[in-house]
Design a protein around this nucleic acid. Structure first.
Lengths: 339, 339
DNA sequence: TTGAAAGCGATACCAC
DNA sequence: GTGGTATCGCTTTCAA
């Protein structure tokens, strides 16, 4: 199998050195911003480099320094993960920041199954300078790679409280609080919640926010109003029907994502009640779904691009041996028609 | 700014050679599958490599061969593009195939503005072996890069019929045909269509399919039933209201994507008509939207993972100097409630 | 402050 | 078949 390469010819240090009348070492110093070079030479080297349209050769630099300038962005390869528009936006945020910092994201969509699997092997093979993980249900691989010394950043708080791996996350607790408080302020007296998967930090945290809102408002928490669903339309619809059967006086529902909010609305309407007049509903995500659904879903917006960007910044900090700050991004409530 | 690198130590040809008692040249031959090496030596080299946990150094190979093993995947950085779940799935398809072929996708989310912009410069800088473009409204950059000899694959048929750039695409004509024919078969006598942006091949092709269905069925095409919308909910709703005002006897609508189908349904219901009893509606994409919307949207499903995979295969063919076949993936109709 | 030169790890050409 | 060696482009000592 023969491979062809593009024809574009690039110039090298040797040519710049020749053109500028200095040595390759000096060219290297100038191009890497080393101070101790005579200003005149700096000028002539830069001029020569521009004249020749110099473009650095990443492979050569990588071979010499041991760093590749590449960061793996790993997504667990399971059907549900891929179709969530969330990840695409996160990727965009990462890519933007990296591009501005002369780094690149190597996208790897792959099963995170076993710690001995291909990915771990791969990541530890020195092909990348670090790895950002976009799905954290399975930590074994991540912990192994991290333990091996590879800079790692998680998107989404790890379930393990004691994890030392740096992460960035949306303030899901704050978001849940915001949504619930909004329903209270709107006059709701009995607010139920549809939770996501509580094994995921996002699910658990949004529920914590719901609880905290009760605490803050001095309202008693009725555990019976907490319905464990699993992010899906169907689960939300079923749980809502149950809630309504048992507590006909519910007048507000906080769903931990937009799809469940839609499921809740479907159930409410099926029971002949109106949204928001009888029951107000707030979702989470500000997804396209929430925007196009009629009635428009009032929802909690998270800064997804910002989340990706923050992850990239955190990785850059790690690569520079700086201690990264844990970034938790705040949310904003988007008021539409359902509450 | 100091950068750290992971601690993992890797072995090299030199060590394998030493351990196996052969030269580096022989190690290279064995590891690259060169025939003319004595079987015994092949065995000992392989054994030594495994014992030492050898992992090839991509940078070294790249420097030596001029090929990087990296393929850029470029997405135009505009808000709408990013939040479309379509691209995430395409990326997954690409990534899977590349991973299995020892290639990697470098994700670049960046404005495709000017041909002189950073990306073109970048792509031509030899940092990647090829580029896959995920959005083809702006061809200048793509044409420039292609003209410069970089292997390029498009996802989505280029608007320019004469373009020589290889592409992969969904059979949008076939999909439009399928949807329209389904409405005919269902008994609809007057079927309108809501088009997407006709400057995009997907929009134009889905409309062509609609026309072809009329032709095939020997029905006369009423241009007045073709409403030019632009993929959005709002545009679809407005155009549908207009269609209904002028042609109250419309009994079927083919919307070129699911969001527009939802817009059409909103308009239809606003006019007090029922879906599908009075008017049947078919969308396109089989998006999450179409699945969770009530009533469930009957829609045309495209194989998005397959599209990404096909693009990757096409790129691999180009890299191996094989002439790639233009791949056009067929669609499938998903029958739900709206038609 | 500058230059010469020794690598980094893999490939490929040239002899034997 | 096999081994020696120059080479890819850049970084980084070490001397000067």
């Amino acid at each position: 199998m023969t491979l062809t390469s593009p024809s574009t010819a690039r110039s090298t240090y040797a040519e710049i050195a020749e053109s500028a009348g200095v040595s390759k070492a000096t060219v290297s110093r100038v191009l890497n911003g080393d101070d101790r070079v005579h200003p005149d030479r700096i000028a002539s080297v830069i001029e020569a480099a521009e004249k020749l349209g110099y473009r650095p050769n990443r492979a050569a630099r990588a071979l010499s320094t041991g760093r590749t300038g590449l960061v793996a962005v790993v997504i667990d390869d399971e059907p549900t993960a891929l179709s969530d528009p969330f990840w695409g936006v996160v990727l965009a945020g990462i890519s933007r920041v990296f591009l501005a910092n002369d780094l690149h994201s190597l996208l790897m969509v792959t099963p995170l199954g076993s710690p001995e699997g291909a990915i771990a092997h791969y990541l530890e093979g020195g092909e990348v300078d670090g790895a950002i993980f976009l799905q954290v249900h399975k930590d074994e691989v991540i912990n192994k790679v991290h333990a091996d010394g590879l800079p790692v950043v998680l998107i989404g708080r790890p379930i393990d409280e004691n994890s030392e791996i740096p992460f960035v996350d949306t303030d899901n607790i704050g978001g849940g609080l915001q949504a619930t408080k909004y329903l209270f302020d709107r006059g709701c007296s009995k607010v139920a919640t549809l939770t996501g998967d509580l094994d995921a930090s996002a699910g658990a945290d949004r529920l914590s926010g719901y609880k905290k809102a009760h605490e803050d408002a001095g309202r008693e928490l009725d555990l019976d109003l907490i319905a464990r669903a699993n992010w899906t339309f169907e689960s939300a619809k079923i749980m809502t029907l149950r809630l309504l059967a048992k507590h006909p006086d519910i007048d507000g529902i906080f769903a931990a994502n937009d799809i469940m909010a839609i499921g809740a609305i479907a159930a409410i309407q099926e029971r002949g009640r109106r949204v928001p007049d009888d029951i107000a509903v707030v979702g989470f995500d500000d997804s396209l779904l929430s925007q196009t659904h009629r009635p428009g879903i009032t929802t909690v917006r998270q800064d997804i691009i910002g989340l990706g960007a923050a992850a990239a910044e955190t990785m850059i900090a790690l690569l520079q041996s700086r201690t990264p700050e844990i970034e938790v991004l705040s949310t904003e409530i988007m008021i539409r028609e359902t509450a």
